[in-house]
Structures are given as C-alpha cells and as structure tokens.
C-alpha cells in the first residue's frame, strides 16, 4: 500500500474546498510522520515512560481509533507509531511469521506512513512489533520489542471487579492468583497454563505475558532489550525494561518448564531447539512440526543448504 492510496482511504488526501464566491481553493494536507498526530504520540509516549518507570504496572492511556480494528493489534500499533523514528527499521511478526496477513498489513501501514525500511531479520531491525512470540535470535539493546496484548489483566480469571483488581495490584495481593495455580495443580497434576503465563515483574507487579508461549518467558528475564506491551481495546500499556527480573509464578517444588515434545524437530530446518508448532497435513493423516519463527527457519535452512553443498565440493 503506497502513501497516496493510504491517504485516500483515510479520507485525509488532498481536498478541494469550495469558497462562498464559487471559486475553489486547494488545501494540501499530508499525513503526519507515523500517522498519529503529535498530541496522540505525546499521550502514548507519556504512558510508555510511566510504564518503563514502574515495570509491570498497567498504565491507562487514551487509546486512539486506528485503521485496524481493536483487538487486531491496535495497541501495539499505537506504541510502534508513537516511538518510531526515521532511523528505525521495522519487523512485524504474527505468531513468529513475517508473512501472516495481519503482520503484513501492519508492517505496510508503518512503512507507508513513515517511509522507513522494513526487514524480516532481527539483526537488521530496531523496532519489532509482534503478536504472541519473541524472535528466536538473541535481541540486544538496539531492539525494542512491541507486543500486541489482547487481555492485559492477569487477574481477570480470578476477579472481575475493576476496583478490587486495582486494590489487589496496589497491595501486591496475589494470593488468589496462587490459589488458581494451586487448584490447577490439584485438578490436573501439573500447572496447565501454557501461553500468557503469569509473571512477577521486578518483584512487584504480576503481568499477563500477552499470550507468548512458555518458551519465550525466560527470555524476558534480565533481557537486553526493552519490551513494551500495548492493549488498544483495553487501553493499557505496560513494560518490561532491560535488566529487569521477570519470574514466572510457580511453587518452589514445582519447577517452571518450557514446552518440549520429545523427538520433534522442524520439518524444514531440522531444528529441535526452537519453539515448534504442529501442523496438520491435509492430505495424509499425520502431522509434522515446523519452527514458529519463519524467518529464523528460512535462514537456518539456507545455512545448512550451503554448508552441505560445501561438503560435496
């Protein structure tokens, strides 16, 4: 989607006004860098600053109407557009995949409204917007990770009253969260919570981890990069700054474990130390595993291809 087309869609394109005397004057209007007006950016940046200053605290913010529906990444998009600069390179993934429809559209929107380059490799990117995954490559201080959050409230499952929720967070009263883990373990023998595992940030606030899989949780702990969580529909922003403790809530005698399927490896790159997803084959009555991070998988496939070719010559 190029910029003029986008402007047309948004109704912001060059417009002709008719004056009282019948003559017409041409009023040129161009999109602001990053689509959002500067007041909106300031509002969102202020929320982000608060979020970084108080790790894990959900900061309410004036969520804007975006050209994507709420619940489709509008929170992450607002953060990305509020912090993006002309020197950034953007990567957008949906469940690890750069080619997901939602990822492609969000990336086009960011690129077309800023003119910044895009990339699929974390190495070349500075701003990574993601839905429910952290790229497999190690990220560093250059990177800012923006996560799209559907439900920012980790205690939603145990309490629905907003005032009570606010009190529980304010007093760090997470006993009922522990009860839900206790009950899960009693009923099922293991803690069955897989994605969006509740974590204690900086020994203070419990956060909902978007739903990223358990696999990605340890990578938030004492990370080199800044993670920003945006929930557009729920109007909340929270953050995990670099070098911050992120501890999954678990009992002392029940170790936290990441997903692991014995024997499973990626059909494409043969990796068995990445987060794998099961794909059902349509033609055969079986399934196979592939890397969730499609870009990582592609690069490693090329790497192994070239090295095997090297062996042959």
């Amino acid at each position: 989607m190029n910029t003029p087309l986008l402007q047309e869609i948004l109704g912001n394109a060059s417009r002709t006004d008719t004056n009282l005397d019948g003559s017409s004057s041409f009023k040129a209007q161009t999109l602001n860098f990053g689509l959002l007006d500067e007041y909106s950016k300031r509002e969102i940046r202020r929320a982000i600053l608060t979020a970084v200053a108080v790790p894990g605290y959900q900061v309410p913010f004036g969520s804007r109407e975006m050209p994507v529906a709420r619940g489709w990444g509008s929170g992450g998009l607002q953060i990305s557009l509020a912090i993006v600069g002309p020197d950034d390179v953007v990567k957008v993934i949906d469940q690890g995949d750069d080619e997901g429809v939602n990822a492609v559209n969000l990336r086009r929107l960011i690129v077309s409204s800023t003119g910044i380059p895009e990339s699929t490799t974390p190495e070349d990117s500075t701003l990574i917007q993601t839905r429910h995954r952290i790229p497999e490559d190690p990220l560093d201080a250059r990177h800012t990770l923006v996560l799209q959050v559907p439900v920012p409230e980790p205690l939603r499952g145990v309490e629905r009253d907003m005032r009570e929720l606010a009190r529980m967070h304010a007093e760090a009263d997470y006993a009922r969260m522990w009860v839900s883990l206790y009950e899960d373990k009693v009923r099922n023998g293991v803690i069955t919570r897989t994605t969006g595992y509740p974590c204690l940030v900086n020994s203070r606030y419990v956060i909902a981890t978007t739903p990223i899989p358990r696999w990605d949780i340890p990578r938030l702990h004492q990370s080199e990069f800044l993670s920003l969580f945006g929930a557009g529909r729920e109007k909340r922003i929270y953050a995990v700054p670099p070098h911050t403790d992120v501890e999954p809530l678990t009992f002392e005698d029940v170790p936290f474990e990441v997903e692991k399927t014995p024997g499973a490896k990626c059909r494409n790159c043969a990796s068995n130390n990445t987060f794998l997803v099961e794909v059902l084959a349509t033609d055969v009555r079986q399934s196979y595993w592939v890397c969730s991070d499609s870009d990582w998988c592609r690069r490693h496939r090329e790497l192994s291809d070239s090295s095997s070719q090297g062996l042959m010559t």
Partner: peptide
C-alpha cells in the same frame, strides 16, 4: 470462596502469608 476447593481456600490464607511450597501447602 464457594467456587474454590476446601484446600484452595486454606491455600489462599497460606499464600497470602508467603507460603510458596506446593507440598507443604
């Protein structure tokens, strides 16, 4: 809490006091 087990209700009191060991709870 009527929608929580008997053990879970007691676990709430214990976890509020800082108990974090499932077996001991």
């Amino acid at each position: 809490r009527l929608n929580v087990t008997a053990g879970g209700n007691i676990a709430e009191a214990l976890t509020a006091a800082g108990w974090r060991h499932f077996g001991r709870i």
